[in-house]
Design a protein around this nucleic acid. Structure first.
Lengths: 198, 198, 198, 198
DNA sequence: CGTTAAGCGAGACGGTACGTCTCGTCTTGGC
DNA sequence: GCCAAGACGAGACGTACCGTCTCGCTTAACG
């Protein structure tokens, strides 16, 4: 009942072509920007047929997202730094550094932009990217709760939304950076009073 | 000094046509969504020539933005409610209500999405929309400073980014709502401790 | 040596579409006249995309010319009537009859008009239409030379230009007809004196 | 009853503007060619309003034709050279020289081309240009008849059509030239037998 | 070991919208 | 009323991509 055919018949998917398409998508995105990348352009650069792309991906955004995901490690480090303040600082500092890498900000903007236009991609982006980072931050807060220095004034959800909101707002709507004094203020706001209570 | 040209020459811009174009843009955006709106479609519905649109607006985003700006009052009320906590609550509550209006969330998403793709529109959206709201919030905080109940732990800029970040992140990346308990927590986080310290 | 590419790749040209485009071009030219025919109109009537037309033809004139060429046999009968006078008479009479057919004169005018505006189409029209008819007439004269009743007073080239010049001048600049007395006079001028000299 | 108003009211037509428009039309036609000349282009170069052109001329062809007519003397010299052969030779030689002038052939082609597309301009071109030259040639033939050396074999109309047909066919459809041997052959064909009869 | 069912590069196809161009008309204010 | 200026409705232009559809291969598992 699981699968009508016992084994797959016919020619296998070409891994070589798959790689060429993702590489082409990645390179074109860096050079031309997401908007100016086209399926036809990717196919031409990869030496692939358009149909081959359409057969395996649902949209340009999916190809590019997979191409980028392959390059960038989407997993976030959540090593224990001993206190919530330190963990929060490390998380924010990691994010700040990420934003300084070439191509990262334009790419984040393009993906979030695309997520606003295509509901299907929105879900995919949510699950495959936003949710992963969210879970990491939630784990940090859960650890703080266990440890006893959690930001008790704010529910976890709101706390997470505030942190990601800050980062994304700066990326999308103002200057995409996070200074040390920003980080210090965030620590003070969300972690310090608890720390001071010790 | 008054005007480079002695007098305006030639036929005047047709206010009737301008209105028809903005109305068409507004209606089509609500019915079809920003992405499916086309310049040709707007021109056809407005009974205007395409060139007339291109003569006065630089892009589809500009037309739609002006159409929406005409409908929605972009000025934010910043009436004095006696304390920063109350002012903040009023601001957040206003925003929460705005998000419940039909068509507002899709439109905000589309405009922010477009701002990520077109640097020129990005600046315009910044200045004509985001900056206005930012100034309103900064005025509220300035009043709190004068009053003596400002959130001294966080610099004004960061405070504003946190608030808008929260709202926009919910609109763009998760559920576009702001509950009463969110508002209470925000008041507690940014305003209450100061108030309580007095 | 036979073909640069080993095999033809990709989808084949659709003969059905080609026919539909030529048919649409032919019908529209008859009904609306060459000037009012547009590429968009042909595409719409043929149920084809504009690009499909641009892929295979260089201009509107090429499409219409091919459409007409398909309908009208461009080969001219040069059956031997025994003498140059008779051959010339037959040639002129054939031409006279052609000019009476509905749509022929407007079409000839439009094609010659277009040939004046577009150097590339000029060459094509020359080679694919004018030259064919010219060769036919030259063959008639060559036969007369062999037979010994050629119009020796005038070089072949000039003789041919006089005959086509007369027909085209009537089509383009005055009344597009050729009467029996015109034909008789032409025979007398170009053929009779020689015949009489025998 | 001829004119309801005794005197013209309002501002008089500006002769300065009329001249500027014709000059602009002439220059643009030489530089860009008839097809690439536009009403808007003429108006811009003349520093005139488009309406001023539309008020006084019916089409681009009329403007350009008037501009060219102003420059070129449309009257043909029909000085008496003593015999039809000599008169014919002079006429053809004049025409041959005209065709060597820069800009003449493209202009003739453009005007004849335009005459095929616009019935109104066709009539105007007929009357103001073709007919003038035709009358000149007819006068030459009439003089020959009076003199007694007319080409009696061909009716005047056909004779004229043959001569103009030759010239126009060479201009429109082949090489726009007329050699001395062409001229000699034409004299021989249309005039020589008569001359020989003397 | 041949049959057969994918996958593949290539590229033609019907569409749709783009932004530009020019048309001929209309409107304005000055002459 | 003529003029320069220039906005207007209209609509074709040629281009760019879309997503789909053949083509004639190549590549396996199946029978």
């Amino acid at each position: 009942m699981s699968d009508s055919r016992s084994t797959e018949r016919g020619r296998k998917r070409s891994e070589k072509t798959r790689g060429a398409i993702l590489a082409a998508a990645y390179e074109l995105t860096l050079v031309r920007g997401f908007d100016d990348v086209t399926i036809e352009g990717i196919a031409a650069r990869a030496g692939a047929g358009k149909q081959t792309i359409y057969r395996w991906w649902e949209s340009k955004a999916d190809v590019v997202f997979e191409a980028l995901a392959q390059k960038a490690d989407l997993n976030v480090s959540i090593a224990d730094h001993g206190s919530f303040a330190a963990d929060l600082g490390a998380f924010l500092r990691d994010s700040a550094i990420l934003l300084t890498h070439a191509g990262v900000v334009p790419t984040l903007r393009a993906l979030m932009s695309e997520a606003q236009r295509d509901a299907r991609f929105r879900r995919k982006f949510q699950e495959a990217f936003l949710q992963r980072r969210r879970l990491a931050l939630e784990a940090v807060i859960r650890r703080a709760t266990d440890r006893g220095d959690a930001p008790t004034k704010v529910p976890t959800d709101l706390c997470v939304d505030l942190i990601f909101g800050l980062i994304w707002y700066r990326v999308l709507a103002s200057e995409p950076r996070l200074t040390e004094s920003d980080i210090a203020a965030m620590q003070h706001l969300l972690a310090a009073s608890e720390a001071g209570a010790r």
